[in-house]
């Protein structure tokens, strides 16, 4: 079409985008640690399993916030749908965990798809309202539908059969950790594929500049619906894992704290490079166990204080210095750049 342009083509830099989606040393280190923990911390498998699940949940938030610039305080909605679906499948249909996981993923994806249209238009403010509102709404439904969900008593009598028909879940959470870790690994691998694709590139473009994105021919709304749905599937799988590994679901799956904590973990871990969830969840659980040992009832006070200090000092600065301390390059963690979409006040 444009001879002037195409004749001079050279390809010396073309491998750049490929490189980006290749795994690095830091990635390998993370997985080594997580695997080693299986053997080195045998008494902590329940906690580790919880961390892996929460990490997956935070990853779901990273997909929409870190990559597509959608701020949400209602990610718990999909976590809850996944958890209840998994519980109900186990009680009424089959105790096979993998089938339960797939059904929950589908259910959460469906709810995510249906509600995605509400977050398309509008500002950060509208999105906050909608995401909080949808979560409260679902929580209220779960609360009222006592016949199905057990209401405030929670969903009881969940029993989960052996994994793949072979490995039974044990009391120490060893199977649970292995299972959660495997799903988290799968989740990260898939997510990396997605964000490294042309689709993922278009999401980052939308996050950066929605108007310009549509002017290069990107159907912005369709892409946002897609990633929101994918993200809700991730959150739903996390919820299902929690239901299956703890064999209990209660109304607190829809808790505002759950969404807010996820946001905090993501911010601690860093947005937009997929591993923020794992790092954030690890750090968060560490802080939580220290604080709640000291003041079991009031640990959210200290958490709040942490948030206030973090923002006041400048979270970019704090996180970057921690990242440097850990030897993760500054290029990987750049929360500032990644909420470029979060519009500046006038």
């Amino acid at each position: 079409m444009h001879p002037a342009i195409q004749m001079t083509g050279r390809s010396r830099n073309t491998s750049f985008l490929v490189e980006q989606s290749r795994s690095g040393l830091a990635e390998l280190a993370v997985w080594t640690i997580l695997l080693l923990a299986m053997f080195l911390a045998p008494g902590r498998h329940q906690l580790l399993s919880e961390i892996a699940i929460v990490a997956l949940f935070v990853l779901s938030l990273d997909l929409i916030m870190g990559y597509a610039g959608i701020v949400s305080l209602g990610q718990a909605a999909f976590f809850g749908v996944g958890a209840y679906s998994a519980g109900l499948v186990a009680i009424y249909v089959t105790s096979d965990p993998v089938i339960g996981l797939l059904v929950s993923a589908a259910a959460a994806g469906l709810v995510g798809f249906a509600t995605s249209f509400l977050v398309l238009r509008g500002s950060d403010l509208t999105r906050l309202m909608v995401t909080i509102g949808v979560t409260s709404l679902l929580g209220e439904i779960a609360n009222k539908a006592t016949g199905i969900t057990g209401g405030a008593d929670g969903l009881q009598g969940i029993s989960i059969g052996p994994l793949l028909g072979l490995i039974p879940f044990d009391l120490y959470g060893t199977t649970a950790y292995g299972y959660s870790l495997a799903i988290l690994f799968l989740g990260i691998v898939l997510a990396r594929r997605i964000v490294g694709s042309s689709f993922g590139l278009s999401l980052r473009a939308i996050r950066d500049n929605q108007l310009r994105a549509s002017a290069v021919g990107i159907p912005v709304n369709a892409r946002l619906v897609a990633i929101y749905t994918i993200s809700s599937v991730y959150a739903g799988v996390a919820g299902a894992l929690m239901a299956q590994t703890t064999q209990f679901v209660s109304l607190d799956v829809f808790d505002f704290h759950r969404s807010a904590d996820a946001l905090l973990m993501l911010v601690i871990g860093g947005t937009g490079y997929l591993y923020g969830g794992i790092i954030g969840a690890g750090v968060f659980k560490l802080i939580q166990s220290v604080l709640s040992d000291a003041t079991p009832q009031y640990w959210h006070f200290w958490l709040g204080l942490l948030l206030v200090v973090l923002v006041q000092v400048g979270r970019t600065r704090v996180i970057r210095s921690i990242a440097n301390l850990l030897g993760l390059g500054p290029r990987q963690i750049s929360p500032q750049a990644n909420d470029a979409k979060m519009s500046q006040p006038r």
Partner: peptide, 12 residues
């Protein structure tokens, strides 16, 4: 752009 699977840089 709809393809969520193939790495963006892999199409020569």
């Amino acid at each position: 752009g709809r393809n969520p699977w193939r790495p963006a840089g892999s199409r020569h």
